[in-house]
Amino acid sequence: MEAMILAAGLGTRLRPLTNDKPKALVDVGGQPMLERTAHRVVDAGFEHLVINVHHFADRVKKVIEEKDGFGAEVSISHEVEKNLETGGGIKHADPQFRKEGPLLVHNVDILTDLDLKALHDAHDESGALATLAVRPVETNRYLSVDERGHVVGYGDPETGEEHLVTDPQGPTEKVDFIGVQVISPRIFDLMTEEGVFSIINVYMRLIAEEGEAVRTHRADDALWIDIGTHERLEKARRYVEGKKEKKEENLLQG
């Protein structure tokens, strides 16, 4: 199995921490987020990792080399001129993939205990173009899903207004995408977008124009912390430190 870790982000909201390092190398619990994410992905059975880099790319490459690829075969997709966002980054990495099966795509700035193998297997059985891990809505940047769990629209990030791109089956529910997904490799034949673009925009176009199915996988009970702001980064650090302290306490009691 293979996976992509989206690690090219600038981390502008984390400045000054990211003045001399990319967001992927921000420390949580004694580990850079890239290392922490990669180990979870590898532990779930993904033996080939594609990692995109841009901001302080050489530093990211050095960590990958020093950590011996986190125990996996690693291919680097270097976005030299600019960060291509999620869709552009995935498309740019096309030559790096083996495409022997579905591709797990994991944002590097997400701390989660989601069962990645279960997400992969759920997608593999569905026949959908993509399967997105989601949780109850907290923001205006939501997705609309129908009673089948299919994505049928999105929320305007400014106003929160719902925009449906296809007719839903039954009532709709608003959910947040948590930055972990599984994608069919046929996506590469369907992406006509160029340059910098979001993968969510690709899905909306393909749902509307081609009738493609993009399904959701509920992650309501999973840990999920997006470390993209100082406040949430500190929350993630407190969580990890709390787990360490509890583990040490259990060892002492044992």
Results as ranks from 00 to 15, higher is better:
I110C: 13
A128S: 15
T166I: 07
T131A: 10
P95Y: 12
G149N: 10
G155Y: 11
D146Q: 14
E193M: 09
L143I: 12
E85T: 03
E100H: 09
V105S: 15
E85I: 01
L103Y: 01
V175L: 14
T86S: 13
P171R: 14
S77T: 12
G89D: 08
T159D: 11
K174C: 09
I76S: 05
V80N: 08
A133K: 05
E125S: 15
P157V: 07
L143M: 11
Q181P: 00
Q96E: 15
D113E: 06
S144V: 13
S198G: 03
G87K: 05
P185M: 01
L114Q: 06
I187R: 01
K99W: 03
E194D: 14
A93Y: 15
E194T: 13
T172D: 11
S198V: 00
D167P: 02
I200Q: 09
T139I: 05
D146G: 12
P157S: 06
V152F: 11
G155D: 15
H123L: 06
H150L: 14
G101Q: 04
E173I: 09
E173P: 06
V152D: 11
I207M: 07
E81C: 06
L206F: 00
K117G: 05
L119F: 05
G179M: 07
H120S: 08
P157L: 02
E138S: 09
G155I: 10
L103T: 04
V180S: 07
G179E: 10
D167H: 12
T86Y: 00
V134L: 06
S184Y: 07
D189R: 00
P95I: 06
I187F: 03
A118W: 04
E194M: 06
P102I: 01
D189Q: 03
D189C: 00
K174G: 10
V145D: 07
F197G: 04
I178H: 12
D156Q: 12
Y203D: 04
T131I: 06
V182C: 08
H106E: 06
H106S: 11
Y203V: 08
E100V: 07
I187T: 01
V182S: 02
S198M: 09
P136F: 07
D189M: 00
G89I: 04
Y142T: 09
A130S: 15
F197P: 10
E125M: 14
I178K: 13
D189A: 01
T86Q: 01
I207W: 10
H123N: 11
G195T: 01
L190I: 00
G127N: 11
N201P: 00
G153M: 05
M191A: 02
D156Y: 13
S198W: 04
P185F: 01
D115H: 04
V151C: 10
G149W: 15
H92G: 02
V80H: 12
T166L: 03
H78G: 03
R98S: 15
P185L: 02
A93S: 15
R141D: 09
V105T: 14
P185K: 01
I187Y: 02
V108N: 15
L84P: 01
P157F: 02
K82Y: 13
G149I: 12
H78N: 10
I200R: 05
R205E: 13
G88I: 05
H106N: 13
N201Q: 06
I178D: 09
V196C: 00
V105I: 15
P168L: 02
